[in-house]
C-alpha cells in the first residue's frame, strides 16, 4: 500500500513536464500548427532554466529565463512554419536536431556553469499532508504540479469558453472559411504557437528544476515526443491530456521502483525503462478514435 502511494505521488510529479508541453501542443495543434519541434523547445527551456539557476540560484528567475528561451524557439519556429510555410513535420524534426546540437554545444562550452540544481521545494499544506493516502499524493508536491493543474483548467476554458478559443479552433479546422469571415488566421496561429512554445519551455524548465535536477545533452529523452502522443491520446482535450499524462507518469515511474517490485528486477528492469514508450505505442493503437484538427500541419494560403 505504502508503495502504491509513493508510486502515485512520484508519477504525478513525473508527468508534469510532459503535461505542460502537451497542453501547449494542444493549443497550437488546434490552431492548425503541428509542432514536432516540441522536444527542441523543451530542450531550449531546460537549458535556459538550468543555466540561469546556476548563475543566480533563483527558481523564479530560472523559470523566467527558461520561458525566454522558449520565446526564442517561438521566433525561429514561427518564421519557418508560418512565414516561410515549410513542411511542418520535417521542419520540427530538424529543429529538434538543431536544439539538441545547440544546447549540447553550449553545455560543453559552459560545463562548469550548468550543473546540479537543488530540488524544487514542496508546497506546504500543513495538516492536509497528514491525510492518509490522499495527503502524500495530492498535498505534498512541488509548485509545478499545482500550477500545471491550474493551466489544464485554463487551457480548457480558453479553448471551449472564449471567442479566442473558438477562433483558434476555426483556424485549425476550416482556415479558409474562418479567414473569409474576418478571423486573422495567421495572427492566431502565431499566438497559438507562442502559447505552445511558452508552455513547452516551462515543461522543459520543470524537467530540469523539479525532476532530473541537472542539465545534460538530450536531457528531455523524448518527453516532447511523448507529449505529442499525449495530445492524440487525450483526444485533443485538456482534461483528456491530463488523464493521459498521469497514465504516462505511472508507466514511467515504475522503472524507479523496479527493485521493490517482484516482477521488475534484474534484466527485466530495462523492460520498465522502455515501458512508457511501449505503453504509449499500444495506447495509440488501441485508443484510435481521436479526430485530428482538419487543417493541422497544412500550409495556409489565401
Amino acid at each position: 500500500m505504502a508503495l502504491i502511494v509513493t508510486l502515485l505521488a512520484a508519477s504525478l510529479a513525473l508527468c508534469m513536464p510532459v503535461l505542460l508541453a502537451a497542453l501547449g501542443e494542444l493549443v497550437n495543434e488546434r490552431s492548425g500548427v503541428l509542432n514536432v519541434g516540441l522536444e527542441g523547445v523543451m530542450l531550449f527551456g531546460a537549458f535556459g532554466a538550468a543555466f540561469t539557476y546556476q548563475l543566480w540560484g533563483n527558481f523564479a528567475l530560472a523559470f523566467g529565463f527558461g520561458l525566454l528561451a522558449g520565446l526564442c524557439a517561438w521566433a525561429i519556429l514561427g518564421a519557418l512554419y508560418l512565414w516561410r510555410q515549410t513542411e511542418q513535420i520535417v521542419t520540427g524534426l530538424l529543429f529538434n536536431l538543431f536544439a539538441f546540437g545547440l544546447t549540447a554545444t553550449l553545455f560543453t562550452r559552459f560545463e562548469g556553469d550548468v550543473g546540479q540544481v537543488r530540488a524544487l521545494p514542496k508546497v506546504s499544506f500543513g495538516p492536509l499532508t497528514d491525510i492518509p493516502i490522499l495527503g502524500p499524493i495530492l498535498f505534498n508536491q512541488n509548485i509545478v504540479v499545482y500550477a500545471a493543474i491550474i493551466i489544464v483548467v485554463g487551457v480548457s476554458l480558453l479553448l471551449n469558453r472564449t471567442w479566442f478559443g473558438l477562433r483558434i479552433k476555426a483556424a485549425g479546422e476550416i482556415p479558409l472559411v474562418a479567414y473569409e469571415n474576418g478571423v486573422p488566421v495567421m495572427r492566431l496561429r502565431w499566438i497559438a504557437l507562442g502559447i505552445g512554445c511558452v508552455l513547452a519551455s516551462l515543461g522543459g524548465a520543470a524537467l530540469v528544476l523539479a525532476e532530473s535536477g541537472i542539465f545534460l545533452p538530450g536531457v528531455t529523452s523524448g518527453a516532447g515526443f511523448i507529449a505529442l502522443a499525449m495530445v492524440v491520446l487525450g483526444r485533443f482535450s485538456a482534461y483528456g491530456i491530463l488523464l493521459a499524462s498521469i497514465f504516462f507518469g505511472v508507466a514511467a515511474s515504475l522503472q524507479f521502483y523496479s527493485e521493490q517490485l517482484p516482477f521488475a528486477s534484474g534484466g527485466a528492469r530495462y523492460f520498465w525503462v522502455a515501458f512508457p514508450y511501449i505503453a504509449t505505442l499500444v495506447a495509440l493503437a488501441v485508443w484510435r478514435k481521436a479526430r485530428y484538427p482538419a487543417a493541422m500541419g497544412k500550409e495556409f494560403k489565401v
Partner: peptide, 18 residues
C-alpha cells in the same frame, strides 16, 4: 563540442527549406 556539426546540418537544411 563535436555536436556543433548537428547544428550545421540542421541549420543548412532548415534554411534550404525556408
Amino acid at each position: 563540442s563535436p555536436t556543433v556539426s548537428l547544428v550545421a546540418v540542421s541549420v543548412c537544411v532548415l534554411l534550404l527549406l525556408a
